[in-house]
Design a protein around this nucleic acid. Structure first.
Length: 271
DNA sequence: CAACGGACCTGCCTGC
DNA sequence: TGCAGGCAGGTCCGTT
């Protein structure tokens, strides 16, 4: 469910409530997430203060003096800030309570999400250490994409969604960025020119920045930590628009499966 | 190495 | 109404 803009929206929402607050209690109702929630989390997080809430790729990092909680929302996860005593609903797997009287509540119907605890630098954790650059940082550009794609025969859309190449670009925003760049999603990554990668790097930044500004994309169920929906779905040009007219040329948007993921594109604008 | 398919889960929607 | 099948915003892992 959440891609970079939804995770960043969540980060901003929880950081405002949690930074500097002290954890009083951790309740794990269902530890069976993507990986089992370690017992050390409930043992070592209480009494710690949240020094910072960071994001790396689609991971959220809750830093304390003793260690960091590593959170990933998977396909269906969400974090909400609720007052202590708020009724527990289905799939409310973990609560982290604070002395402010607020609770950070992790809900995840599909349980593809992650909640881990590390005493050392979370950026060196095995799940994070191999990640590619952040798409909104200056070191992500057309030159980088062009260089990284040489010899790659996979579709450019799969290449763009590969977290070792660049992080945070999921299915919605890969479709949107390729549409804006006029690149066919099935084109071989190694056969896209430097000039077109310059354009693509720009459209990736553009689409992610705009989506963050709009508070993310709410298609089915995404809500921010404060319970607000996003609005970027109003700006979608390709994603889930099969059969609808391209907003630029009027040609019907097509759907194609690439790497087991739905891909939407305009057969006229994208080559 | 790069590429691919399967795996992990629940919920919602469509069509018979 | 029930049930099967397909689909969903992610990504790791084992096999080619």
């Amino acid at each position: 469910m959440p891609e970079l803009p939804e995770v960043e929206t969540t980060r901003r929402g929880i950081a405002a409530h949690l930074t500097g607050e002290r954890v009083t209690n951790v309740t794990v109702r269902e530890p069976r997430l993507r990986w089992r929630v370690p017992r050390a989390l409930a043992r070592e997080l209480p009494d710690q203060r949240i020094a910072a809430v960071r994001r790396r790729a689609k991971y959220l990092l809750l830093d304390t003096h003793a260690g960091s909680a590593i959170v990933h929302l998977g396909m269906s996860g969400s974090l909400r800030i609720v007052p202590a005593g708020t009724a527990v609903r289905a799939h409310d797997h973990v609560d982290i309570a604070f002395d402010s009287g607020q609770v950070l509540r992790f809900n995840d119907p599909r349980r593809f999400g992650t909640l881990l605890w590390t005493r050392s630098d979370p950026l060196r954790h095995r799940l994070l250490v191999h990640l590619g650059p952040e798409p909104l940082e200056f070191n992500f550009d057309g030159a980088y994409l062009h260089e990284a794609s040489r010899g790659r025969r996979a579709p450019v859309k799969s290449f763009l969604m590969d977290g070792n190449v660049v992080v945070g670009v999921g299915n919605i925003y890969a479709n949107e960025a390729l549409h804006l760049a006029g690149i066919h999603p099935a084109r071989e990554a190694g056969r896209v020119s430097r000039a077109r990668y310059d354009v693509l790097a720009g459209t990736v930044k553009q689409v992610l920045s705009n989506a963050i500004e709009r508070g993310g994309t709410t298609l089915r169920d995404f809500l921010s930590a404060d319970g607000e929906p996003g609005y970027f779905q109003l700006d979608l040009l390709a994603y889930e628009r099969k059969g609808e007219p391209c907003r630029k040329c009027g040609t019907r948007i097509k759907r194609l499966v690439i790497g087991q993921r739905s891909s939407y594109y305009c057969p006229r604008c994208q080559r």
